[in-house]
Design a binder for these strands. Structure first.
Length: 447
DNA sequence: CGACGGGACGC
DNA sequence: CGACGGGACGC
């Protein structure tokens, strides 16, 4: 209550987040005593003892605002349970609930010790740990991976032991990591015994042993259901799903009047082909602008036996791997009797495309960016990546959501120029590509 | 017409 | 149990 700079008093109490303490203390404690006790932990922007409106007596509650969350957290960690003045009860110290929040639960350490970060896809959990250990001892790190391929999604969690460590990481790590506090995993608030005194949440279990492949769900079958809003002919659907060998059945569903319902049922002779077709065609735009939805449907086969299920999912996982990493990486461990998948002719264009080239590492510095206009509608990301990577050094394809434009990030200017020269004005899968010209193509990006 | 992002964990 | 004030930027 003292000098909260006037503007901050109502709006910036939570700025930055988690920089304000809620202190439960003796009714006899004064603002000055609080300030003195807490000021060693950082810059105090204000101390406010809540008092009864009429009697003006302290209600034994106070708020202490720091300029940084790490300072508030450190103060909480150090002061919780301490006796401030001889003969008074020990204080309880929490991060204050944000003013806009309606809930009245204490903010638990659980919610303050885990951060969520964006990292290069090349990062291992070891890399992640090494990067973030400078802010405090890490309980564990996890990288979010594709369940089937094990490929990193470029996102990770880092759990510290103390809130102040997580806060320091968020405040001081490189901005490109976009570190924020992670939302608690389960909404079910762990009913940790939080009885008075200095008892805080104790994290000791869980070394972080995560399984990559989900063997439990029985979601894979040889049958697919395709849904579309655009009217497609039987022949078109057949062509689409003929991208892999083994199609046994393909039929557009019709109602009693022979009208199409926008669904087609497709069955393959083997699970792998179904998995591949599902992965490649689900979300595919055909014709451009019309997203197909493709999902597994029950094929009536018995998947209840654990062995059979394992086998099926193993095959599915291998297929996924092939889909994502290309045929070269799928040479290993091909199950017997499993038909080879032919590459999908999914790109039709008037350009003579050079062979595929590897993408530049995701954390590469962008030297050039192409601005691309799509007409009539944007092509799917995987198609764009396939086309635009062929000139080398492509880092990333970015589509502007809800618009018909996108950006192609390149690590090398010459490659970008080559791509522009080759692709400007060309037709890919029925749609036009128009590249912007002039200055707009020469922005330098900050990574 | 067509201009600047992205983010979530096995129950 | 223990949760949110007093006073008034500067145009």
């Amino acid at each position: 209550m003292e000098e909260f700079p006037s503007k901050q008093s109502t709006e910036n109490l939570d700025d930055p987040p988690n920089s304000r303490l809620f202190v439960v203390t003796s009714r006899s404690i004064t603002e000055e005593e609080l300030r003195e006790s807490f000021s060693v932990f950082g810059d105090i922007q204000g101390v406010w003892v809540v008092k009864d409106k009429q009697t003006k007596e302290s209600k034994g509650i106070a708020y202490v605002k720091f300029s940084k969350s790490s300072q508030a957290c450190l103060a909480m960690e150090e002061m919780h349970g301490k006796v401030l003045v001889e003969g008074t009860k020990p204080v309880k110290v929490f991060i204050a609930q944000s003013r806009s929040s309606t809930r009245h639960r204490d903010v638990e350490d659980e919610e303050l010790t885990r951060i969520f970060v964006m990292i290069p896809k090349t990062f291992s959990e070891e890399d992640l740990k090494n990067t973030f250990k400078e802010y405090g001892e890490i309980e564990y790190c996890v990288i979010i991976k594709n369940k089937f391929t094990g490929e990193s999604k470029g996102l990770g969690y880092v759990r510290y032991y103390k809130p102040s460590q997580a806060a320091l990481a968020i405040e001081n790590c490189d901005k490109t990591y976009r570190a924020i506090l992670a939302e608690p995993r389960s909404k079910a608030a762990s009913t940790e015994d939080y009885a008075g005194g200095a008892a805080r949440v104790d994290y000791s279990a869980d070394p972080g042993n995560y399984q990559v492949i989900d063997y439990r769900s029985g979601e894979f079958t040889r049958c697919l259901m395709m849904s579309t809003r655009a009217a497609l002919t039987q022949e078109q659907i057949f062509s689409l799903f003929d991208i892999v060998p083994g199609m046994e059945y393909c039929e557009l569903q019709r109602d009693a009047y022979g009208m199409t319902k926008g669904h087609a049922l497709i069955r393959y002779s083997n699970l792998g082909s179904a998995v591949y077709a599902k992965e490649k065609l689900n979300g595919f735009e055909y014709p451009p602008g019309n997203r197909l939805a493709v999902n597994f449907v029950d094929d009536g086969e018995d998947r209840s036996s654990p062995v059979g299920r394992m086998a099926m999912q193993f095959v599915a996982a291998q297929m996924m791997n092939a889909v994502w990493n290309g045929p070269s990486s799928s040479q290993v461990m091909k199950p017997p009797g499993f038909s080879t998948v032919s590459p999908m002719p999914r790109i039709q264009t008037d350009v003579s495309l050079p062979p595929l080239k590897k993408l530049a590492p995701p954390d590469s510095k962008a030297k050039e960016r192409l601005f691309v206009v799509f007409s009539p509608s944007p092509l799917p990301l995987d198609v764009l990546e396939d086309v635009f990577c062929r000139y080398g050094s492509l880092i990333e394809v970015h589509l502007v959501p809800g618009r018909k434009v996108g950006y192609m990030k390149y690590a090398d200017k010459q490659c970008a120029d080559d791509a522009m020269a080759a692709l400007h004005g060309r037709i890919v899968n029925g749609g036009h590509l128009t590249k912007g010209s002039g200055d707009c193509c020469h922005d330098t990006m900050t990574p």
